[in-house]
Write a protein that binds this DNA or RNA. Structure first.
Length: 421
RNA sequence: GUGGAUAUAGCUUAGUUGGUUAAAGCGCCAGGUUGUGGCCCUGGAGAGCGUGGGUUCGAGUCCCACUAUUCACCCCA
């Protein structure tokens, strides 16, 4: 117990952190080009925020939140998703008074959901995500989807599928809900137990039930797309036109409705079909009513979340080549105390000059040091003993070929600092 | 929350029909010339077999429970 990480959590080991850096750099770089600014938000929020923002009928809120009372008697929840917190920040700091739209992103943001872990699903996972406030036009929907695709493509992920849907707005939703409920009532006996329950409260969710009987009912059910009001329909058409113009392949999937209540109009998912059961790498949509729901003015919003562990898992499954971290440029192998001091000094100078260098600090024999340097995959090893100290020239071994030259410490310093320039 | 699978050294595994001090490869450490790596050789450290019960003269090997891991459902990133 003591030496086991809690269920559903995962350590990033020293040999794998470079993979995170790889995707983080891509995310930052793509966001830079698209003009998105980074935000960092708290890991926990008042429980109330998620009840109001995400919706208290959703599975996420009802059964997956890590909620507890703090010592001051407040109900606190570790964030299960990122958008509600961003909306809260937007309202709290009155960012709607600044130039809109506000394009924002976050990464390595920890999210918590109490679920049974499995491949690509953790109780604590990290998301890269984007939120844009104050842009109701469909051009932003297209931009956000393209940004997500740009990140995934740059990371090297093949076989991506974009699935798109529109679930309408507060104007057209009631008529649709009505029609859907009537239809579902007529087919109630064909539905599974859960669907019969949620049919009243949250009928949309029946559409993506995976039970065979429900799938059959859902297949013939009224679709949100057929009930869109004129504005929503136009918005959706326009989004599709943007994507087509930019050659973003997508498929309209009338069954994606997403599990968070704040979505309006556009919802989308990006799938990596080779990922197994948890194939959604990225999911998001528009939330034009959320800012108001958390107490702000009426400001449109759209965003997505991308699972970083899932992206990494997909890259691994697809054997995507991630650039290895920089090797140690020089290992200095001293023999004797005096040599150790000289070695320490050269290494310090190299480090200050930005060269990745290392020397012995556990008193190993020369042979053992060379073995160690070999394991580290060092480019060069410099050997210093009493002879070298006396003559002023150290032996420098190229670990690739094995050939040795002699150079003064100053020459070694020059050689390596030149190389990094 | 539901269902299935698995649980032996740091890692990957072997452990015959239950029977002496639990085995191998990799990795780690040290040697194989008194100052030289990657190959090879030798030696060493390291598990008492997930935990707790039970059956038995005797269990890593059988039974039960628990826990953990894992895959799928559900949900979602």
């Amino acid at each position: 117990m003591l030496t086991t990480a809690p269920k559903g959590t995962k350590d990033v080991l020293p040999g794998e952190s470079y993979q995170w850096h790889y995707i983080e750099n891509i995310m930052r770089e793509v966001c830079r080009v698209y003009g998105y600014d980074e935000i960092r938000l708290p890991t926990f929020e008042h429980t109330e925020l998620f009840l109001r923002g995400v919706g208290d009928t959703t599975d996420v809120v009802q059964k997956e939140m890590y909620t507890f009372e703090d010592k001051g008697g407040r109900s606190i929840t570790l964030k299960p998703e990122g958008t509600a917190g961003a909306a809260r920040m937007f309202v709290e700091h009155a960012l709607y008074n600044e130039a809109l739209p506000k394009r924002l992103y976050y990464l390595n943001s920890a999210h918590f959901r109490y679920e049974r872990p499995q491949a690509g699903r953790y109780r604590e996972h990290h998301q890269f995500g984007v939120e844009v406030f104050g842009a109701p036009q469909s051009a932003i929907d297209a931009e956000v989807i393209m940004l997500a695709m740009a990140v995934l493509r740059r990371a090297g992920l093949p076989n991506l599928e974009v699935e798109l849907n529109s679930i309408g707005c507060s104007k057209c939703r009631p008529a649709y809900s009505q029609a859907l409920k009537e239809y579902l009532h007529a087919h109630e006996d064909e539905l599974c137990g859960t669907c019969r329950e949620r049919m009243e409260r949250n009928p949309l969710r029946v559409l993506d039930c995976k039970v065979e009987g429900c799938k059959a009912v859902a297949a013939a059910a009224p679709k949100p797309v057929d009930y869109l009001c004129q504005e929503c329909a136009a918005h959706f058409e326009s989004l599709k036109a943007y994507l087509q113009m930019e050659n973003v392949k997508f498929r309209v999937n009338p069954f994606i409705v997403r599990g968070l209540d704040y979505y309006t109009r556009t919802v989308f998912e990006i799938l990596s079909p080779d990922l197994g059961a948890q194939s959604t790498v990225c999911g998001g949509g528009r939330y034009d009513g959320l800012i108001e729901a958390v107490g702000g003015p009426q400001v449109a919003g759209i965003g997505f979340g991308m699972g970083m562990e899932r992206l990494l898992l997909a890259l691994e499954k697809m054997n995507v080549d991630i650039p290895k971290p920089e090797r140690v440029q020089l290992y200095v192998a001293p023999m004797g105390e005096e040599a150790s001091l000289a070695a320490f000094d050269l290494v310090s100078r190299l480090r200050q000059a930005g060269v990745k260098a290392e020397t012995d600090c556990v008193g190993r024999s020369l042979k053992a040091q060379l073995k160690y340097a070999n394991k580290l995959d060092c480019a060069f090893v410099a050997v210093v003993g009493s002879d070298e100290l006396a003559g002023g020239a150290w032996r420098v071994r190229d670990m690739m070929g094995g050939e040795e030259t002699t150079r003064t410490p100053e020459e070694i310093f020059q050689m390596l600092t030149e190389a990094t320039k």
